[in-house]
Design a protein around this nucleic acid. Structure first.
Length: 486
RNA sequence: CGGGACGUGGCGCAGUCCGGUAGCGCACUGCAAUGGGGUUGCAGGGGUCGCCGGUUCGAAUCCGGCCGUCCCGACCA
């Protein structure tokens, strides 16, 4: 399925570029259901890589997987006041089944806190039954009014971790541990370095005491909330009667956390690394890390094809995910464009000339700062070095993304005028002081379209803590990061 | 959910104002040659024009309703 049309350049229209890329790289397509997408094999392959790695990290931090029902009794969702206010407008509700009206409607889960904690309540008697550390991989539904492939769809895939603890300290620690897991995953696997921190009260999850988040900066300098970790306190345990007997013998409500990332991460991946030719995949998440394109001649193709297969086997044995593209009806150039559009990190060309010289032609998807577009490397060396090349490529992507984020970050802003000016100049993250007043958030949003993304964790904070709130009058109680967001 | 735009083979579009039995490019199929950045020639296949209804002798074209997509806004992972 070749496709000659160029993508709309990012600089011209970032939205069009994104929409075209997602479809033309065959990541996803619109479905007949409003706001719901089909994730195609290439996109799902990336999601599978993400799942595998995250799942390993969850297991390493002591969690187990389980599965809870898709349908949740409406009365459950209505039990936690903040929670129902947050989710009611976007619920899809099942009112009929088996040809009859249901006595109680079921909501299609927008998130599973309520049904999960209702079950935990059955399972927990004593402090010895805690902690419970579960995760589930699931689909959820939020009837969004405005959707975009991967970034906001009515139905999406995610994981949701839900834990119950005997003490607030332990729950808080869990919340921060999982925020750290997400951050590590985004940096080391997605090459998408986020800023992490605490959400302001207005941005806190409906039903949580505190929400922590990973905020990543996209190439259009808008922020993407890429993962959240919530300290729920006893809000849900009190509503669902999740109690336990302490060592001392008295009853207490358990302390909960929940945390999640979704297929939205794939949108983040696209907007972090993609270029005007198409997708660019970090090697650790690429379903195919190298595609071999044999350069075939009409006269005798067999030596080239034999060598191609030999190289494929050698790389595969070195745990490289490699694919041979030997389709005969396409010219090499057409294949190059196709695999570039799909973001494969490396292309390897093998032709008669390479055969004669015992070399391979290696072409990285992104030309390194100091490198060449295509390198001719002796076969043995190329095979031996290939895993390192992939790691270098991975590091290159992270380095570039971090540099972009830092270049688009503005610190030391002390007034609303300066803040407005910074965003007019195209700033990404802007750091200021804040007094904690939600009205300041409202004012800034009206003037600039930006919101507080996080109260940054210590290592992201400015060297000198801001003394005054950006509104000018009151003293700052914390530093905050502003951005326009997805 | 409010404002705007759009919906014609897989993709991109023309045709719609001034109703008269659907067209172009790319892609696709077959054969042959070609093959190191979107290869060429020849021969083919595919669309009841988003859906439903109305007006009319006749509707892609006019009218109404609905659905979907995109952009702006409110809301949101």
């Amino acid at each position: 399925m070749t496709d000659h049309k160029k993508l709309t350049p990012r600089a011209e229209d970032f939205s069009s570029w994104y929409n075209e890329l997602v479809q033309r790289a065959e990541l996803a397509d619109h479905s007949p259901v409003r706001g719901s997408m089909v994730i195609r094999p290439w996109g799902y392959g990336i999601w599978e890589r993400m799942q595998r790695q995250l799942d390993d990290m969850f297991k390493e931090t002591g969690h187990e997987n389980a599965y809870f029902p898709l349908l949740i009794p409406m009365s459950f969702i209505e039990r936690e006041k903040e929670h129902v206010e947050g989710f009611a407008p976007e619920l899809a509700v099942v009112t009929q089944a088996g040809g009859k009206e249901l006595e109680e409607p079921y909501a299609i889960r927008p998130t599973s806190e309520t049904i999960i904690y209702s079950m935990y309540a059955k399972w927990v008697q004593s402090y010895r039954d805690l902690p419970i550390l579960l995760n589930q991989w699931a689909n959820v539904m939020r009837w969004e009014l405005r959707t975009r492939l991967f970034l906001r769809t009515s139905e999406f895939l995610w994981q949701e971790g839900h834990t119950a603890h005997a003490t607030p300290e332990e729950a808080e620690e869990e919340t921060l541990t999982m925020l750290g897991v997400y951050r590590t995953f985004m940096e080391d696997w997605m090459a998408m370095p986020p800023v992490t921190g605490l959400k302001s009260p207005t941005e806190t999850f409906a039903g949580a005491v505190r929400t922590y988040a990973c905020e990543a900066l996209m190439q259009d300098n808008k922020a993407l909330q890429a993962g959240t970790s919530h300290f729920l306190g006893q809000n849900f345990s009190k509503q669902f009667d999740l109690r336990f007997q302490t060592e001392a013998g008295h009853e207490e409500y358990a302390w909960n956390t929940s945390w999640g990332v979704s297929t939205r991460l794939i949108g983040g991946l696209v907007m972090t690394h993609g270029d005007d030719e198409g997708l660019v995949l970090p090697p650790r998440l690429a379903p195919v890390q190298a595609v071999i394109v044999p350069i075939l001649r009409g006269d005798d193709e067999s030596p080239v094809l034999e060598k191609t297969e030999e190289v494929r086997k050698r790389l595969s044995d070195a745990d490289v995910r490699v694919k041979v593209d030997a389709r005969e009806h396409l010219s090499p150039g057409a294949k190059y464009y196709e695999w570039e559009r799909k973001g494969v990190p490396y292309r390897i060309e093998i032709g008669p000339k390479d055969l004669a010289k015992g070399q391979l032609a290696l072409a990285p998807r992104v030309v390194p700062e100091d490198g060449k577009r295509k390198a001719f490397v002796p076969e043995n060396e190329a095979v031996a070095e290939f895993p390192n090349l992939l790691e270098t490529f991975q590091a290159e992507l992270l380095g570039r993304a971090a540099a972009r984020r830092d270049a688009a970050s503005v610190r030391g802003v002390t007034s609303l005028d300066e803040l407005e000016e910074a965003f007019e100049q195209g700033a990404g993250f802007v750091y200021t002081g804040w007094c904690g007043d939600p009205e300041v958030e409202e004012t800034v949003k009206e003037r600039t379209g930006a919101t507080i993304r996080v109260l940054p964790d210590e290592e992201f904070r400015s060297e000198r803590a801001p003394e005054k709130c950006v509104s000018g009058e009151r003293a700052a109680t914390s530093e905050v990061v502003w951005a326009r967001a997805y």
